[in-house]
Amino acid sequence: AEDTGVRVELAEEDHGRKSSIALRLWVEDPKKLKGKPKDNGAIEFTFDLEKETPDDVAQEMIESGFFHESDVKIVAKSIRDRVALIQWRRERIWPIVQ
């Protein structure tokens, strides 16, 4: 995935059973953002792979004051890339569960 300067990782082990997963996001390279992020904290949140979109979560992060609105696309892309990887792994590792 492209290096967006925003890192997103699983915050829990993915067993492929739940549609909702915990993710953790933090800024690795502030210079890649247009606005100044709130701080250097890691933001943990749950994401429903079936019902939600990365754009929704990114928008909620902007509205919650974590990022400047001009960075909504880069945050959404960072989440989208990680979610795509999780779904890719699920389809290959747990196809029967799916």
């Binding site: 890192r7 933090w26 690795e28 390279d29 250097n40 943990e44 949140f45 909620e60 919650s64 974590f66």
Partner: peptide, 27 residues
Amino acid sequence: SSLTQVVHSAGRRFIVSPVPESRLRES
């Protein structure tokens, strides 16, 4: 470590914790 919780009006909960130094890229 200190945790901060932010709840968005749509109901989603964000929990903020310090990022370990080892995970921050040097700039």
